[in-house]
Amino acid sequence: MTDGLSNPEVPVPEELRGQVAITTLDKVYNWGRRSSVWPMMFGLACCAIEMICTAASRYDLARFGMEVMRPSPRQSDLMIVSGTVTKKMIPQIVRLYNQMPEPKYVLAMGACASGGGPFKEGYNVVSGVDRFVPVDVYVPGCPPTPQALLHGLMKLQQKIDGQSIRSVRWYRKEASESIPVPILGPDLIDPRDIPHIKAHAPAESPEEAQA
């Protein structure tokens, strides 16, 4: 275990090999985090079934230290957005994301979560969760096979490995901002769009908008 952690440039005396590791803080910290990413137990649609299969015995997510699925956002590090994001559901997803403590990651599983997928044209479908929350890893597929999801999770581990506590956003001085929760209006309203809507609303009667 210590072998992977040690910094090869610093020699360790023979008698202490295997017991002492000399390494950097970043490495230990990242190693700890990448080996126990707790996903949120949160299935949206068909992709969730493959997510469950990934966690089950054949594919066994536990090999990555990720089998502890938490139903509460407060205890989870990773949100696997496994399925179609609908307009009716996105306020809840944003709220859940805001409730997760940092460091937090988002994995968009499947075509729907990544970009709307087969249902993109639908009136109640958000074309990709990245319109509202920042996504770290996209896994293509409809649904992605468990192998693909595992690959995505390993990509996430790689991403974690590359991070440094000096630069990550959750150790900055200023508090991180939460994402404004979308409003269910006549259609979905992104609060960040309200100035735009205000500026254009009077001119935009439905007939004109379609013209």
Partner: peptide, 26 residues
């Protein structure tokens, strides 16, 4: 991409008397 032809903000259907401030989400 289809969004470029029909940008989200332009094609949303609002009732004619809709104002952003006046909207109370149900």
């Amino acid at each position: 991409r289809v969004e470029e032809k029909a940008p989200l903000k332009k094609n949303v259907q609002y009732p004619p008397d809709f104002t952003a401030e006046g909207w109370v989400p149900e």
